[in-house]
Simulated scan of single mutants.
Amino acid sequence: MQALPFYLDEATHAKQRYAKWGADKMDENMDCRPDPEILIQLANTRMPFGKYKDRRLIDLPEPYVVWFSQKGFPHGKLGDMLQMVYEIKVNGLEYLFNRLKSD
């Protein structure tokens, strides 16, 4: 059996990863339309432990989120959310969350 090219494996991995976060919003071309409820939840979820306990995930310092990406994200929903925060920060998209934050 021939190994799949890297990009195919990555696409499959992305579909599996986003299955929990609104796969019904993705078409076959990987055109991701994020679920607004998930974005609101991401904007308002706070870090449950550590130096930045009680800080919104989206407001965590980028070096801290990069550290998680290098050492490994926690398992479960928190890890999934931190992975999304990492992608948002790496791509400079934090400003998209300014209106979504509740006080």
Rank of each mutant, 00 (worst) to 15 (best):
K71A: 00
Q83K: 15
G79W: 03
G22V: 11
K51Q: 00
R56A: 01
L39M: 05
N44K: 00
P63E: 15
Q2C: 00
Y86K: 02
D27F: 06
L42D: 01
D27K: 05
N29T: 09
R56S: 00
V65S: 11
L78V: 14
N29D: 08
V65P: 07
G79D: 03
W21C: 08
W67C: 04
Q70K: 15
M47G: 02
L100Y: 03
A43Y: 06
D27N: 15
Q16C: 06
M26D: 13
L57Y: 06
P48H: 06
E87P: 12
K101N: 00
K20L: 13
P74E: 10
L96C: 06
D9T: 12
R33H: 13
V90A: 06
D9P: 01
D9F: 02
Q70V: 10
L60E: 05
D27Y: 06
L42N: 01
Q2A: 04
M81P: 01
W67T: 10
G22D: 11
G22P: 09
V85E: 02
F73K: 09
D31N: 15
R55S: 10
I58E: 00
K89S: 00
A14W: 07
A19K: 11
K89N: 05
L39W: 05
D27E: 05
T45R: 01
M47T: 02
L100P: 02
L60N: 03
F6E: 07
M81I: 04
Y18E: 14
D31M: 14
C32F: 10
K89D: 01
E94R: 04
V65K: 11
A19D: 14
P34Q: 05
M1F: 08
N98P: 04
G72V: 10
D103I: 09
E87I: 05
K15F: 09
A43Q: 04
K53F: 04
A3L: 14
R55I: 12
E94T: 07
V66D: 14
G72D: 07
N29L: 09
D59F: 10
F68V: 05
F73S: 05
D80M: 08
L8K: 07
Y86S: 02
G72E: 07
A14E: 12
Q70W: 13
Q2K: 07
F73L: 10
V66A: 11
A3H: 08
L60G: 02
L39F: 00
S102A: 06
L8D: 12
L82W: 09
L93E: 01
V65Q: 12
G72C: 09
A3N: 08
Y7Q: 15
L82P: 11
S102R: 11
G92A: 01
F73M: 10
K77C: 13
E94F: 02
M47F: 03
R46M: 12
L42P: 03
L8C: 07
V65I: 15
D24M: 13
F6A: 09
D103H: 11
T45E: 01
G72I: 11
L42W: 06
I58D: 00
D31G: 08
A11N: 00
F97V: 02
